[in-house]
Nucleic acid binder design. Structure first.
Lengths: 338, 338
DNA sequence: CTGAAAGCGCTAACAT
DNA sequence: ATGTTAGCGCTTTCAG
């Protein structure tokens, strides 16, 4: 576990293999021109010495780091994890690694994080959402690398966008209920504007209700984002206590929706007979809970995949203008709604 | 988004501020000796130029990267996410960032990942589990940095350990059932030895049953780890079809346990009356589903926190011998068991 | 296919 | 409190 002596360098490997450091450098690259005999001699020498390639030196000299910076609101969220997985898979073939940071749904924290990440000279940066502090925006604009905003369709993007309209997605859900003659619909979401996607969903709910000429005043504040299952359950409790004639509730996420569902179970309220419930995200739980949960699939993995493709295109010079890729969230009709 | 000209360096900032590059370097460090006037002049000059500190150069020269490498099996798992959060919080105060990679529960992938991570010269490395390929082990042993294995208590640790016995934790659960006179107990887990923690849990189940003189042959293979909610439900279906006199089932994780629970709901099987169900992990869902799920809390956040503390101690020279910190998983008795 | 020279941008070490 | 010198370990560039 401890190596008291200094770690071996390429020069050490070169000496042992009887070649120049430059040849060792080439031997560690994939497609460079080194004879097979020389290469295997070098790799063996390296192995004997316990040599491990030093990226820090390589990064500085070549001005390439081979990683892409990614910020997500929370590491503990299956939707964002799926986006990261899509990104990761898409970038892997090019040898690009992901440097991940999370913002805790806080744009001040995002600012700190983005600066930290940019110091490490990523080849590109992917951020979640389209709302940033002025300084974050300036940092991104001046970074000189591809910038991709995701999970949103910002009015004034910094660079590229791979996302969807959170408001429009919720409108789809409202329409779904209204077409089933359900009109007394509530919304359970965060009580702060911290989570901009949550805020957009609530705004989309209000706008959609008003477009149908319906009251949009059944808004239940469930806590500070991210809203937990427990907070969803508590919010449903308050809704049932204060507005018992409510026919349906749209929740800001599947997690809060599942919490709400369990509260109905505990109180013996039939779902969807007495109360329909809808979520957002199409987390695994939505498909398997009883009754299964009507929700919106925002295609998180696809967001990551498309962002990765876009990054590769831009780095290859195949794409130069800022692109906006708008995905269509999918309404997943299940048993928690009519 | 595009910066055609080259990015400014410390030399540029120094020139504009009328000082030497060394003073600029000091101004960007926290506690270094620069007069307030000089520092603010420098920071202003940097701001005007849009200068962003270049860690790649700093890393090479100072031989410090200020990050800790962490490998986890999956990015989409609340337990591991909690450990990462504990680590992250504990390391943040020292300015250490986390470089995260995931192995997909595959020790071959772990080998690739560990080598990639070590090339970036982390200050320490935290891995999940105690089983590695011989090469991974060699890489870790020779890395010359603190190595911490987590989520397990390996027989022959590489270096430090912060973990718990997966087998002993499941024994606690078996004892819980047996003390309630429940003896026909099944285990739902993975069908491969890919997930070593899952394998240890199954082994712990078998050993505990045998210690009680009970048959340990109700083993249901639910798929390739990680076992999903859906796979847990399917496994429960097979269990009910083939061994209907089973009284209780212990699942390799809360996710599969919840799936199993929903299968009981769909079939009208009363839990825990006809079938008791237990999970592992104390995920949020365990506390809120109906009935709430008896499970084991392995204290994932605490694992991360302790690992972070240990790293700081070792880096400070306050701890030199390999340490093993064994945590005690907590049995969470809830409504899915008697 | 291989090598020699130079230098990436910062900071350790030493000075004052 | 600030400056000077040298060099971290690679790879770019140019040569053969």
């Amino acid at each position: 576990m401890s190596t008291p002596r200094k770690a071996p360098t390429m020069a050490d490997v070169a000496r042992l293999a009887g070649v120049s450091p430059m040849t060792v450098s080439r031997a560690f690259k994939r497609d460079s021109s080194v004879s097979d005999a020389t290469r295997s001699a070098i790799l063996e020498a390296a192995d004997n010495l316990g040599y491990v390639f030093d990226s820090t030196a390589s990064n500085l000299r070549s001005q390439r780091t081979d990683f892409v910076a990614v910020t997500i609101p929370s590491i503990n969220n299956a939707n964002f994890a799926d986006t990261v997985r899509g990104l990761s898979d898409g970038l892997k073939e090019r040898g690009l690694q992901i440097l991940l940071g999370y913002t805790d749904y806080d744009i001040q924290e995002e600012e700190r994080l983005v600066e930290q990440l940019l110091r490490r000279r990523p080849e590109a940066i992917v951020v979640t959402g389209g709302r940033h502090t002025p300084r974050t925006r300036r940092l991104l604009e001046n970074a000189g690398i591809p910038v991709i905003e995701t999970w949103d369709l910002p009015d004034d993007p910094v660079g590229h966008v791979v996302g969807f309209s959170n408001a429009a997605a919720v409108r789809t859900m409202v329409d779904h209920f209204v077409s089933a003659k359900i009109t007394r619909i509530a919304f359970i979401g965060g009580d702060a504007d911290r989570d901009t996607r949550g805020t957009d969903r609530r705004a989309g709910f209000i706008a959609a209700m008003q477009a149908h000429g319906l009251d949009a005043d059944r808004l239940i504040a469930a806590g500070t984002p991210p809203i937990s299952m427990r907070e969803g359950a508590d919010a449903m409790g308050r809704l049932l206590d204060t507005l018992p004639d409510t026919q349906a509730v749209i929740c800001v996420s599947d997690l809060s929706a599942f919490g709400a569902l369990t509260e109905c179970q505990r109180r013996g309220i039939d779902v969807p007979g007495q109360m329909a419930v809808a979520g957002f995200g199409d987390y695994e739980i939505a498909g398997i809970c009883v009754p299964s949960l009507t929700t919106i699939d925002p295609q998180p993995r696809e967001i990551g995949k498309r962002a990765a493709d876009l990054i590769l295109e831009v780095l290859d010079g195949r794409q130069s203008d800022p692109a906006t890729i708008a995905l269509e969230p999918i309404l997943m009709r299940r048993l928690s709604s009519p």
